[in-house]
Design a protein around this nucleic acid. Sequence first.
RNA 1: GGCGCAGUAGCCAAGUGGUAAGGCAAUGGUCUGCAACACCAGUAUGCGCCGGUUCAAAUCCGGCCUGCGCCU
Length: 319
Amino acid sequence: MENLKEKKRPLIILTGPTAVGKTALSIGLAKAVGGEIISADSMQVYKGMDIGTAKITPEEMDGVPHYLVDELEPWEEFNVVVFQRLCKKYMEQIYAKGKIPIIVGGTGFYIQSVLYDIDFTENEADTSYRQMLEQKAEDEGAEVLHQELAEVDPESAEQIHPNNVKKVIRALEYYHQTGQKISEHNETQRQKESPYDFIYYVLSLSREILYDRINKRVDLMRQEGLEAEVKRLEERGCTREMVSMQGLGYKEILDAFTGKCTMDEAFDKIKLETRHFAKRQFTWFRRERTVTWLDKEQYDGEDTLLAHCVEEIRERFQI
RNA sequence: GGCGCAGUAGCCAAGUGGUAAGGCAAUGGUCUGCAACACCAGUAUGCGCCGGUUCAAAUCCGGCCUGCGCCU
């Protein structure tokens, strides 16, 4: 057992709510410990979406290799499964170079998928059943689908609220494709131990300061031309239905373009929804097992914080 | 100074005698193929203040305070 543990490879995770300052810390960290960065961010993968995602610039990267930033076109689909596959691939490349992968980003679910190597493989692209269910939900109501789920997988039905149509459909789809209950599958996945020797940092700030930073950051995005950025994407054929255009800051401005609201309202909404997002991220990280909280206010400046992390990492991984 | 209207949670707001709707915000939570998604749960022993009528008052009566409008 002890032997097996020795074999686990090192992995550093740096996450935290949006606008907390992950990017700034990540570069110093990568340089100090010999790491390369893989972004765990559902929106920064997209090319042409720079301002609204507060994407790191090539200059800011300062020579540190980054993966999963600017890799997909906005009309391509990105989701956990794709993320997991690519992330694992890049991790292998990084290990092969004798470096340590550092996963940086705020999408908790993506991090979890790699950290615990969650098993998603069970079907191929056939979406007809799902589409049928979506149609059914629309025609007959969410309750009906939930009833169906209750018949095949009562545990899931109990856990998933009837109004949460997306999750109900996924559970039904899973059962349809595998003949097994997703509640059981989830339970076994939850028992998994991470195949990595990891340090999971969650950078945090008090709500008050963070919300203030979010508001200011959105104001800055507006100044830097977020509106023009969205316009460009729209001209290239991006629509609200695309995964990329569901990102914060994109869907709202698209709405303003179609006259659903004024531009001022759109920006206010972006601020509000970004704050909501940050709150959800806190909820996620709070219940995540084995995380190391890094409260920025407890440290005397970024350098001190960085030094603390570097020391901890070196000791832990013996480098 | 006089007359009129208004005063319900952080904000908007329903309620005209029977024991405080709703929305937003704030907060907490769920999440295992759309996750920057989707979804859920609370939040006024209290209706500007004081007193009165009544079995019962946010609702009626009186006074006061504050805001707005009009008049002098």
